[in-house]
Design a protein around this nucleic acid. Sequence first.
DNA 1: GCTTTCATCTTAATTGATTAAGTTATATGA
DNA 2: TCATATAACTTAATCAATTAAGATGAAAGC
Lengths: 339, 339
Amino acid sequence: MSKLTLKSVAKTLGVSTATISNAFNRPDQLSVGLREKILSACAELGYFGPNKAAQSLRTGSSGIVAVILSDSLEYMVSDPVASQFLQGVTRELERHKLHLLLFSGSSANLEAISDFVDGFICYGAPRNLGLIEQLTRSPKRVLTVDFDLPGRPSVNIDNEQAAYQSALAVLKPTDTVAILGLRLIDAPNSRPVLQAPMWDNQSSIAHRRLDGYLRAMAECRLTLRSQYLWHLPESNQHYGQLAAKAVLALEPRPTVLLCMSDLIALSAMREALQQGIEIPNQLRVVGFDGIEETLRYHPTLSTVWQFSDAKGQAAVRAFLSGDDSPQLLPYELRLGESS
Amino acid sequence: MSKLTLKSVAKTLGVSTATISNAFNRPDQLSVGLREKILSACAELGYFGPNKAAQSLRTGSSGIVAVILSDSLEYMVSDPVASQFLQGVTRELERHKLHLLLFSGSSANLEAISDFVDGFICYGAPRNLGLIEQLTRSPKRVLTVDFDLPGRPSVNIDNEQAAYQSALAVLKPTDTVAILGLRLIDAPNSRPVLQAPMWDNQSSIAHRRLDGYLRAMAECRLTLRSQYLWHLPESNQHYGQLAAKAVLALEPRPTVLLCMSDLIALSAMREALQQGIEIPNQLRVVGFDGIEETLRYHPTLSTVWQFSDAKGQAAVRAFLSGDDSPQLLPYELRLGESS
DNA sequence: GCTTTCATCTTAATTGATTAAGTTATATGA
DNA sequence: TCATATAACTTAATCAATTAAGATGAAAGC
């Protein structure tokens, strides 16, 4: 039994390769009778359709979209925000009969798969600078989500404005403020919880949100001492609790916690309540992202509500549209019992 | 600027396509001087090497090996056994300059990527029967790990014998035995913790280990009542605790817990200790797999120690070898304080 | 000086598909 | 009846590479 190809199948069926190809791809180009005969004969032979690699070479598109996750796969699949986003992506890709290839930013061998995919949707600024470099110069379509790359289309919310509004909604002129932030794009990730020595002009959400917080604080004539600013390497309960413990031990104790994710905010609240600190009387907390758990938790969390599922959908649409203009999605400021 | 291909680059440099190709792939086929000139000229032009899709079409190999994980990505990356295995795979693939494509068994669109990869290493029996079907008839090389597929090479340990030995090492003729097992290949996964109504002759590790346990029990003239046999949908702390709670509440209470994974065993021990049950006096526990945490835990766990990292390595080697005979890896019975 | 060897580069067939353009044969219209 | 339109297939160029076989010229051997 020789290899099954369009050619070999065409020869055994006594028709041209074009006809077999059309039977699979363009039903209108041949009679229904012949088409059915061909399809059933192929099934019989064990030929399951044109070779995708050859198809991709010829047509210039494989139907596969790679989604690059900034962090480890473990983080992404366990973070409700990220998995919501992925659900949106998956659904919208399926609608267009496209396939998803999940990629973690840490194992950054883009070049190995670049020629096999139609492009990249990159979720979150990658730690890996080499990856950023590769994405920048890639000839494929690249769409970024939650960060920017020069000359590339992006999907985002106005993080600066959202952070500004959320902070302004809780701040009072007499407050002591602590910020539980996310890592900055260029922050080394060796230390588990990092007090950022500085930040650059990169466009990660962490920078934008920090800018927003600081603008709101400046407007309230509040200043931030460096011990009150923390950058967590990942958005999870572990680091949230760690950082919360640290800032709640400071003198004077913060009266407001600005948290760059809901997971961080929730674990910080948990820690505060355990210490007997009353929310919102002694401590007000505001989060970011909008996850279901904040609604079930008591007290409910004030947060910037993003529509992560819709964001995934929007990302795919923007990717496919060919439009290179940056896209800003809506968000909602939702105030809860925590402020 | 037209598209950069071997042809276009060859034309602008005034040499043949073969020479460019050789510059990248077969340095011995041209003079060092010309090669360096070509390579630096390509870098200048922004041509980063031959198109992988075309390369793969022509040579019949892409250098990408897909690893299919039986369960969700979340489970796999958080399970120390699985991540050890993946590390071994990654390292060995890198050694052969091959690339890894991670795939979750749940999103089983093999056909979309099948033509782009050199084959599949499938870790653990997939829940998804359609996927098994696809793997069975795939024209690509398929290697299975921890389960068997008709006509395919596999890498495994002798699960039946290992389970038998581990059970025999702890059992006494007066014992009441409970088994905290893993899901069987055809068990529906709707119920979170499942008492298996039956099992088939499929070759999943759960079947093999169960067979081993039962053989050891039979040898000790012990019988198993169905309430004492649990099949957990996943190997994690959550289900382990749930199942442990259930069996420890039975009358008579089990004196031995045979657990099909160390994660299950550890959480079962945790639960038992919390209930004030003494280990090993009132309850003996034996696990399976061999993870670092069992050594740090007190009491240390008796378990079947597998070398998961080496297993990953062996899987890649067997995959590349072309040898179709099943491979049995060594394991060690390590007795701890729990028995 | 003439053949042989070898290194270096080129030619052209091939990989498995798509698709515009071309070829029949049949049906339609005047 | 004859030109014309349409449906149903086929031909052959093309996608971006690899590679066996061929060509060329210089060095080596006798």
